[in-house]
Computed example of a mutant assay.
Amino acid sequence: MKILVTGGLGFIGSNFILKLLRESDDFEIVNVDAELYGADKRNLSEIKNNKKYEFVKGNITNRHLMEEIISKCDLVVNFAAESFVDRSISDANPFLVSNIRGAFTILDIITKQKKRMVQISTDEVFGSLSSGTATEESKLNPSSPYAATKAAAELLINSYCVTYDSDVIITRCTNNYGPRQFPEKLIPKTIILANQEQKIPIYGKGQNIRDWIHVDDHCNGIMSLLLDGKSGQSYNISGNNEVDNTTIVKKILDVMGKSEDLVEYVEDRPGHDFRYSMSSNKISKELSWKPKISF
């Protein structure tokens, strides 16, 4: 089976590619990545000479390129996205181009070529929850321009599934952590700054709550859905580890033997969602998936 992975030089995409090639001989991978913010060629340096791996530098908005590549593949997993919330607040336009136009380009092509697509979305499409937990049926209520573009892509996909019977699955995941994560993210940033004895900035009062899942567990979920997920359905993937930011940072400092004096609370960002929460009961019941790595 030949799989097109878009955005495969990023954190989650690169882990997914490595997992596919390590755990099975059944897959060939074509990786299309525009090498924009968040991409890192070093993430996949160990497989650059692998005969079952091909890298193509290109943008998912390039219809001619995507038509040609998709025609040679059996299915598409779309990780490609602008994904940094703070940057979407500073300038939303690149997010509209990549996350809406790019996703639409792939969606339209796989529909015409009758291929399967897995769209990697986010728990942020549900917005902040003061109580309860989001299921696949919960309403979309995005707060940031980033989340709004991911929600827009989901709505486009839903419309294509209803109108054209497109073969698409949407996955939403909570906060990932693990190898190859971009250093701007909370956990690697905390480790790097603590090592350098530098101040660790935390937004607001540090009470914002996120659910955390290891990237390998996330990739396992995607692999299960890739092969056995139901077309036209969405699936939430979560780790059941809801923790506030201050607790995470202080735990890391404790493990590293560093002083909590390194913590520095800074002005909160605009529209900062207080709490994300998702239930992964659906994927657990249908595909017997569950996280294996303890947070």
Rank of each mutant, 00 (worst) to 15 (best):
V76Y: 01
K48I: 13
L193N: 11
S130D: 13
M256L: 15
I60V: 12
V162T: 01
A92D: 03
S280G: 01
S14Q: 10
E286I: 00
L262E: 06
E46H: 08
G204R: 14
D167V: 01
A34G: 00
D217E: 10
Y146N: 10
S279F: 04
L287N: 04
G257V: 08
L156K: 02
T61C: 15
S224W: 07
S45V: 07
Q119I: 02
E137A: 13
F16N: 00
S121L: 05
D273R: 12
Y235A: 06
N195T: 13
L156E: 05
L193S: 07
L226C: 10
E136W: 13
E68L: 09
I200W: 13
G10E: 06
F104I: 02
T174S: 11
L140K: 08
W212D: 01
K185Y: 12
G204D: 15
I110D: 01
M278H: 02
I222H: 13
S231I: 02
V118G: 06
A151W: 04
L9D: 02
G7Q: 09
D244C: 14
R116H: 07
H214G: 01
F84G: 00
S259D: 13
K199Q: 14
L96V: 14
N78W: 01
E260L: 01
G38F: 07
D268Y: 05
H218Y: 15
D165H: 14
A153Q: 08
A152M: 11
V76M: 00
L129C: 01
V76W: 00
V5E: 04
V249P: 03
E67R: 14
E137W: 09
H272Q: 15
S231R: 12
T105E: 02
E46G: 04
I106Q: 00
E35P: 00
T6K: 03
Q207F: 05
E46M: 12
R275N: 03
N141G: 01
W289H: 12
V5T: 03
Y160K: 08
T135F: 09
Q233M: 13
L156V: 02
K285Y: 07
V162S: 02
I237V: 14
E242H: 10
S83F: 07
S159V: 00
H64Q: 10
L226W: 08
I169K: 12
I170R: 03
E54L: 11
E67S: 14
E35C: 08
G257S: 06
D273E: 15
V168W: 09
L225M: 15
D74T: 12
K251W: 14
G204H: 13
G102R: 05
V32E: 06
T247P: 10
